[in-house]
């Protein structure tokens, strides 16, 4: 064989290898694309017995949860989830926006390089540790400081009256959640803000605007969809948070009327009852149905915010 042919064969082999690798790699990329669907289908399949036996509206809006009597009303849990998430997001958003705007617009490189590892560490702390912190610090804080502050003063204010005296409840869960979702909201908002070209900032500063005027009139209007998406992303993270919330929220299936009430969010319901669910008919189907409900809501939140963010961040 002459040299040209040898080279040709090597070339062909290399090309073949390239195509082969491409095919295998492509095959693996299918996995994440269909995984969401597989998870949803599997949950639906296991939840099917209860979905076929009860009206969906009875499950979602039913108020009574007594599995051994065949009563599976998700309403207290859905409301509990909404309450805790809302309180967490309301507490987190103002501080997060201020911090991310500060880091993106005002802070020196040195401040940023200190803030980033702090946020990374906050994001790295496991949920169960957040739960321990909530139990040791936040629950007593609500009990000893916030509740006495509110008691007597805010009793007539709806949503804020002190109803039970332990410190466990929506407010404690909300505070813990707020700290947990803060790093996510801050880092995504920061990234969104950094997509604004400096030319735009300079155009505003150049006519003598102050920095805050520039931020309010130029930077925020330009990035509003992305900022909202960051908040929605944070909210969806809060919706699914399980262990940390479960440890401080009280876990009583009531319909909350105040942030001092206890609540029983969906993820806590699922986590707390995995042990006994096989012994009662339809119990496991109900719990996996609860997981399915959670999944669907989070998927909607997630897909919407991700689409917005993908478009914004690519513009860079």
């Amino acid at each position: 064989m002459n040299q040209v042919n040898v080279i040709k064969t090597i070339q062909e082999n290399r090309t073949k290898k390239n195509i082969f690798a491409q095919k295998i790699f492509f095959g693996i990329t299918i996995f994440p694309v269909i995984l969401t669907l597989i998870v949803a289908i599997a949950l639906f399949f296991r939840a099917f017995p209860i979905l076929s036996e009860y009206q969906l509206s009875d499950l979602l809006f039913g108020e009574v949860w007594r599995p051994n009597q065949g009563l599976f009303g998700f309403r207290p849990f859905i409301l509990g989830t909404i309450w805790v998430t809302t309180v967490g997001v309301i507490l987190a958003v103002p501080a997060c926006l201020l911090v991310s705007i500060y880091l993106a617009e005002y802070a020196h490189a040195r401040t940023r390089s200190i803030a980033k590892p702090i946020l990374d560490l906050l994001a790295a702390i496991p949920p169960v540790v957040y739960g321990v912190w909530g139990l040791l610090s936040i629950v007593p804080f609500v009990d000893d400081v916030l509740a006495p502050l509110a008691e007597g003063r805010l009793d007539s204010v709806p949503l804020l009256s002190v109803t039970q005296p332990t410190g466990f409840g929506i407010l404690a869960g909300g505070i813990v959640l707020a700290v947990m979702i803060a790093p996510l909201i801050i880092s995504v908002t920061f990234e969104v803000l950094s997509t604004v070209p400096n030319d735009l900032r300079h155009a505003s500063l150049g006519v003598g605007a102050t920095q805050w005027q520039t931020i309010r009139n130029v930077v925020i209007p330009q990035t509003l969809p992305g900022i909202i998406a960051a908040i929605v992303l944070g909210a969806s993270r809060a919706l699914g948070e399980t262990i940390a919330v479960l440890m401080v929220v009280g876990n009583v299936p009531n319909i909350p009327t105040s942030i001092f009430d206890t609540a029983y969010p969906l993820p806590a319901l699922i986590a707390n009852n995995y042990g006994e669910m096989m012994s009662i008919p339809l119990y496991d189907a109900a719990l996996l149905g609860a997981a399915l409900v959670l999944l669907v809501v989070i998927l909607i939140f997630n897909i919407l915010s991700t689409l917005v963010l993908q478009r914004m961040l690519r513009r860079k």
Binding site: H202, V218, P221
Partner: peptide, 8 residues
């Protein structure tokens, strides 16, 4: 500026 930068 070098490149026109209309505000949004």
């Amino acid at each position: 500026a070098q490149r026109p930068s209309p505000l949004p």
